[in-house]
Design a protein around this nucleic acid. Sequence first.
DNA 1: TTTCTTTCTTAATATACCTTAAGTTTTTCC
DNA 2: GGAAAAACTTAAGGTATATTAAGAAAGAAA
Lengths: 195, 195
Amino acid sequence: MTSNEHITLLINHIRKDVSLTESDIEALTKIIEIRELNKKEFLFQPGETSNSMNFIAKGCMRSYYLDENAQEHTLQLGIEEWWINDLYSYLSRKKSRMYVQALESTILVQLPRLKLEQLYLEVPAISHFFRIKIQSAYVAIQERVIDSMSDESYDRYKDFIKSYRDIEQRVPQYIIASYLGVTPEFLSYLRKKHS
Amino acid sequence: MTSNEHITLLINHIRKDVSLTESDIEALTKIIEIRELNKKEFLFQPGETSNSMNFIAKGCMRSYYLDENAQEHTLQLGIEEWWINDLYSYLSRKKSRMYVQALESTILVQLPRLKLEQLYLEVPAISHFFRIKIQSAYVAIQERVIDSMSDESYDRYKDFIKSYRDIEQRVPQYIIASYLGVTPEFLSYLRKKHS
DNA sequence: TTTCTTTCTTAATATACCTTAAGTTTTTCC
DNA sequence: GGAAAAACTTAAGGTATATTAAGAAAGAAA
């Protein structure tokens, strides 16, 4: 697949929410960078600051952090046509506490922050698109807070599958466990018990 | 306290983040509504849609929802100079699942959504201010996700106190328990154990 | 294929947290 | 100020989830 096809995927994705003229597309295309990551490679790590919006054209990514006991906690997962980032770091321009990592060999279409903010002035539709995206990110994370409050861990697992239907098959169980906040052993037990 | 003082509180609050001219303030003041709530009164309830941004001029509020077992889960708390809402409902214009309730007798300075969106066009500083606020709401809720992943509930309690220093004294323990996701009995046990 | 590494499962034991219920303290309101 | 309601504490017994460790299965590498 050529880099053009990845860009087209992004453009069609944006066009689901807002209309773009040919000149909008040209301006957008100018600021795009393509980034390839090998399996297990990091997009960024704690201490770095996120400086781009990252669209997954191919592959699978996750964000996670390590707690004081060096336990991994997965916050976000994504496959083709999802966005992956530490939005906290991107929006606040502070250092991230997150690892953002490729779970498969992955191709990202990146929009660097400074150029994107320039583009907002030129192409309001793009600004509008990202306002929608940041709103949905807020909605998604609030959903996550609510789901995580269910004290039945099997319910949380069902919530997870509802939100991440297509992803469940592609990521290892231990990552799902780290998303749900249970041990892999316990997740294994739950799956057996309910099957 | 007159309603003017409540409005001044809001204006000074906004001026911490952006500059406002006298005419900005005049335009802002025009759309303001004051809402008084008695203790335990609801600002809105599940099934309703949030149609305003709500600044607490006086009092104490919380948002919570009921799970399938009719357990309360507190999502957000606020006192003077905090904003309280179901931002999910406000931004998406969908029905809320939340109760937003006064924990003390409370005075809100409200900005109705439609008028506020008009005001954004007239006074960009206000638009900028709320972009900052919505960003911080995102940051706060991500913080909450991370804090809630600590499986030691006493750690979560310490995180809570760090985020809600001034509020801890003013709300009942059982609400803190419902925020932390533990029973009031267990919170009581924890506080004794660590004191 | 064969070996090595990663991921998944099983099971025994340990612990954090819940449930219930009763008693105590604090707050509300007439 | 006093009665009623709301909130908080204590403790016993129960359940959900963690820990550890070992073996099985699947995937990657050679």
